[in-house]
Nucleic acid binder design. Structure first.
Length: 677
DNA sequence: AGCACGCCGACT
DNA sequence: GTCGGCGTGCTC
């Protein structure tokens, strides 16, 4: 009787509609009809009428209340789709906060957090007998990873930046992985042993393979779950449902794994937070690091950023006291030698652009095992230039850079793909092209000649190789695609440093250091790494292994210039009037400054807004209000004869790492920039 | 997104 | 007087 009374009074369902429309990004109230009273519980999927839109929408029931805040008459909840409470209160709170912080829709974040329903998978999961009795987990310690501090951090919900041991190790099963993977796995055992779950986020699949190998060596298989975008829908949903169970798990995945509904979350660990793959490509484009920081704050779990180098973002958090530093228990100093670009005496080595010292080192190392050669990027010849005047070759249609995909292919545009069959230089009318820069394929040919008789292995985006054996071989890999060698590489040659450093980007320095540090960490103990053709602060940061000092100096520069991550930024894109209004709406906020607006080649304009972290909430809510306003009040199109589709009215993107790079890459500015000498 | 509501021009 | 144009706004 008391129960039925309770049901009678709690008749309002507050529902999040599954829609990307910003104006629908709030809770809608519905009456719960008596027949649905028992099924209508928080977190379940529901269907609700949207009268004005004349349709039935999918939604998620957020809460059940006595009364809503809506004055009119409520429509009835149409149905409860399934009894599974897929959206937990913690994940809902996280989605709302993360969306607000990025001026986006909560339902866009929820879509990352809750995979599509798979009826068969769900039925199978519901039919399973609960409580199969999970095996106990034993903690594991790894050398030089301070287990006392790790355990204490997990117990107290501490935020750490972990400087990983720069070595490779063999895990039971014979697989060689980066030491970092065993550190993450060990941290996970501490979380699970004290009855909590661990979320482990890695940027890409090759990292995930290593981490899974390390985890399987220390945890029972049923305690490890993968949750990533590469899985099929049923697999993903099965893994997601497993997280909803009450057995603590190690949940491994890339970016959106930070939104997993982990039971009693004890730890979030992120590997290599500087890797751009941690940026979510879907609106509202939230970085794994930021989502993790928000979640850590709300749930009080431990948070570890593990890496071989330090991003400026993490350095900032260290400097404001938000993160503590955990270094290896014993100091590691990989042997790194920067070498000048002077060519080798040996003609063949010179052709492969290897300085004599590097060539000698590689030759000697090849007697004992594999040698890693890191090169810049995939494709046969990344850039083509005019053979007579040297100006880089541009597409006639779109001004994009021309390149070659293989030795015999026709030059093609890197932007629009158009084949450049009858190219002539816009500067000198020359018609002959010359290769500029090298790549894995081209380097392999040259090195093959310089080291006759040596086995050559190529690893790049198209030829992914995860591991190589301990036998002598030249392993030529594009940065980020380096295989792990059994026992480590006997030497590492970082060949295209000069070209990597020449890339125009705000983050070149820290990116290069990250690529190099990750490669150096694959070397065998005592093996030499050679950085070719780069000097200055970057080279000495690598050689002295003082990566935090480099990040500190870099951050100081950004502070001076008011560039991220010293400040936050948001790009505001849309029509002239909409961007203008958006900029005005935030003009009163303290210490906000606006760059632009500038015209875009695609039409419309873009402004970059800079502001201090403390003003983030105010900026986000003002810009969000403008987004909603522009979405609801449709402006009339001027000059109707141009039968062009309406522009997206107003787009806001927060913390886009490329904001300052892309200015130069937009149409006119890029085309008119003089070629590098 | 869809769909209704509403306030101006040509019609019976 | 009234039918319907699409510009404007709303969705519990």
């Amino acid at each position: 009787m008391a129960a039925s009374e309770a049901f009678l009074s709690r008749t309002v369902a507050r529902v999040l509609i599954d829609s990307p429309l910003p104006q629908l990004d709030r809770l809608f109230d519905y009456r719960i009809p008596a027949v649905l009273a028992e099924a209508a519980v928080p977190g379940v999927r529901v269907r609700v009428p949207l009268r004005s839109a004349g349709r039935v929408a999918d939604g998620l029931l957020i809460e059940v209340a006595d009364t809503g805040d809506f004055a009119g008459t409520l429509s009835d909840l149409e149905s409860v789709v399934s009894p599974v409470q897929v959206l937990t209160p913690e994940v809902w709170a996280l989605a709302r906060r993360v969306a607000d912080r990025a001026a986006g829709s909560a339902s866009d974040v929820v879509r990352l957090a809750v995979p599509k329903r798979q009826v068969r998978v769900e039925k199978a999961w519901l039919a399973e007998v609960a409580g199969a009795g999970a095996e106990p987990v034993h903690t594991v310690d790894v050398p030089d990873f301070d287990s006392t501090r790790v355990e204490a951090a997990i117990a107290s919900g501490t935020r750490l930046v972990v400087d990983a041991v720069p070595q490779v190790v063999e895990v039971p099963g014979g697989r060689w992985v980066g030491h970092w993977a065993t550190e993450m796995a060990a941290a996970a055992t501490h979380a699970l042993a004290r009855g909590g779950s661990a979320i482990l986020a890695v940027p890409d699949y090759r990292d995930q393979e290593q981490l899974v190998a390390a985890l399987e060596a220390v945890l029972p298989p049923e305690r490890v779950v993968h949750l990533d975008a590469r899985q099929s829908n049923p697999d993903r949903y099965r893994a997601f449902l497993a997280c909803l169970g009450d057995t603590p798990l190690a949940i491994v995945g890339n970016r959106s794994v930070v939104y997993a509904p982990a039971e009693r979350l004890s730890l979030i660990a992120i590997w290599d937070d500087g890797d751009p793959l941690h940026v979510e490509p879907l609106s509202p484009y939230v970085h794994t690091r930021d989502a993790a920081l928000v979640r850590q704050e709300a749930q009080g779990c431990a948070l570890f950023f593990i890496g071989h180098s330090r991003s400026t973002d993490v350095e900032r958090l260290v400097e404001i006291g938000w993160l503590e530093v955990l270094s290896p228990a014993r100091a590691y100093l990989p042997k790194v030698i920067p070498t000048a670009q002077q060519p080798a005496q040996d003609r063949l080595a010179a052709q492969a652009r290897i300085p004599s010292s590097a060539w000698r080192e590689a030759r000697a190392a090849l007697e004992h095992g594999p040698v890693l050669v890191q090169v810049a990027r995939p494709g046969y010849a990344p850039r083509l230039a005019c053979a007579s005047c040297g100006q880089s070759a541009r597409c006639r249609r779109c001004e994009g850079p021309l390149g070659l995909r293989s030795a015999r292919s026709t030059p093609a545009c890197g932007w629009c793909g158009a084949l450049a069959t009858e190219w002539s230089c816009s500067n000198c009318e020359g018609t002959r092209l010359r290769l500029v820069g090298y790549s894995a394929g081209r380097t392999a040919e040259d090195l093959g000649r310089a080291f006759p008789g040596v086995r050559i292995i190529i690893a790049d985006g198209e030829r992914p190789i995860l591991t190589v054996g301990a036998e002598p071989a030249l392993v030529i890999a594009t940065r980020g695609a380096e295989p792990v060698a059994a026992g480590g590489y006997r030497a590492v040659l970082l060949l295209d440093g000069e070209r990597m450093v020449a890339r125009e980007s705000l983050r070149v320095g820290e990116d290069c250091l990250r690529w190099w540090c990750n490669a150096v960490a694959l070397a065998a103990p005592g093996a030499t790494s050679l950085l070719v053709g780069v000097g200055g602060a970057l080279a000495s940061a690598l050689a002295t292994w003082r990566r935090a000092d480099y990040a500190h100096a870099e951050l100081e520069d950004r502070r001076r210039l008011r560039f991220p991550p010293a400040v936050r930024v948001a790009t505001v894109t849309g029509s002239v009037e909409a961007v203008e209004r958006a900029v005005v709406s935030i003009a009163q906020i303290d210490r906000v400054d606006v760059l632009g607006p500038v015209e875009l080649a695609a039409g419309g304009v873009r402004a970059i807004v800079r502001f201090d972290y403390g003003e983030g909430a105010a900026v986000a809510s003002s810009l969000r209000a403008e987004v909603i306003r522009t979405a609801t009040s449709r402006r009339k199109r001027a000059g109707g004869s141009a039968g062009r589709a309406a522009l997206p009215t107003l787009k806001v993107r927060f913390d886009d790492a490329l904001s300052f790079d892309s200015i130069e890459q937009d149409g006119t500015a890029q085309a008119s920039r003089p070629p590098r000498a």
